[in-house]
């Protein structure tokens, strides 16, 4: 790891000021991706702005018809939250399937979303549930937030404060983990709210998380696993790597989506 200066602001405002003064600085949330990346010298920020001590960034609450989760809330806390388990059990289950227990005790929802790893789980939930990302500057709808792998709508000095998830009527997440790394080779989050059905796919797209128009169209009339029989997803735009070809991933997407819909509609 290359040397950096370390800052531990007490407020988000202080964090934003520090980020403004240090153009090469990076925000440290749980560090479960950033620190390994720095250890491999794939990232070498001049400064780290650690949000660990910044107040008001953790916690889970229901506000109206939304579950609002603070950016520094750990995966383990989302996974075991009674509030999330009651309102959006699919989100609690997703958080409980990230990494391993020790990673879930450090990793944060804000960090995962800001990083937008193409195989991360959370971005699919944010996109399928049509969440709103609330930063220190503005509110960003999920459809505008993710802008290709490792790339988001966040600007310089912009920090995620919380994420607001509208409570769906039905939702579920399923993933096909790589047998070695356990990262999603394909992960599908399905959500139905009123007449709208949204399907987000992670792990597969060469531009990161995306909504599948084919699957959403098939599920629009009837939110049922059978609605996906015979539905094909195109391989173009999907990743091909040592783990799976784009054709294989294209085949997996409706298979995993069908399992997700079955889970979402099970009693």
């Amino acid at each position: 790891m290359y040397a950096f200066s370390y800052h531990s602001p007490k407020t988000v405002r202080q964090a934003a000021t520090l980020l403004g003064k240090n153009p090469d600085a990076k925000v440290l949330a749980g560090g479960q991706t950033l620190l390994p990346t720095m250890k491999q010298r794939l990232a070498s920020p001049s400064a780290l702005v650690d949000l660990g001590k910044a107040e008001g960034l953790s916690g889970i609450e229901v506000k109206g018809r939304n579950v609002v989760i603070g950016a520094m809330t750990r995966h383990a806390d989302v996974a075991t939250s009674a509030v999330v388990g009651e309102a959006i059990p699919a989100l609690a289950a997703l958080a409980g399937g990230i990494g391993d227990p020790a990673v879930r005790n450090r990793g944060t929802i804000g960090g995962s979303i800001a990083n937008n790893d193409p195989a991360a789980d959370y971005p699919s939930a944010v996109l399928a549930l049509n969440a709103t990302i609330i930063t220190n500057k503005r509110k960003i709808p999920a459809d505008q937030f993710f802008q290709g792998m490792f790339s988001t709508a966040l600007e310089e000095g912009e920090v995620i404060v919380k994420v607001s998830f509208p409570i769906p009527s039905k939702a579920a997440y399923e993933k096909f983990p790589n047998p070695a790394s356990r990262y999603a080779m394909v992960g599908v989050f399905v959500a139905k709210k009123g007449s709208e059905t949204r399907v987000a796919v992670t792990g597969a797209g060469s531009d990161g998380v995306f909504r599948s128009a084919e699957l959403e169209a098939a599920l629009k009339a009837r939110f049922n696993p059978k609605s996906l029989d015979g539905v094909k997803v195109k391989a173009s735009g999907l990743n091909s790597d040592i783990h799976a070809s784009s054709e294989y991933r294209a085949h997996l997407i409706p298979v995993i989506a069908k399992r997700a819909v079955a889970k979402a509609t099970a009693k």
């Binding site: 531990s8 560090g31 390994p36 391993d100 005790n105 450090r106």
Partner: peptide
């Protein structure tokens, strides 16, 4: 996981946590 310790009662990987944090 050979580096797992407890921080404030929760298991974490100490090779992926800064001491200053």
């Amino acid at each position: 996981g050979a580096c797992v310790v407890h921080v404030d009662g929760r298991s974490i990987k100490s090779c992926t946590t800064l001491a200053v944090a």
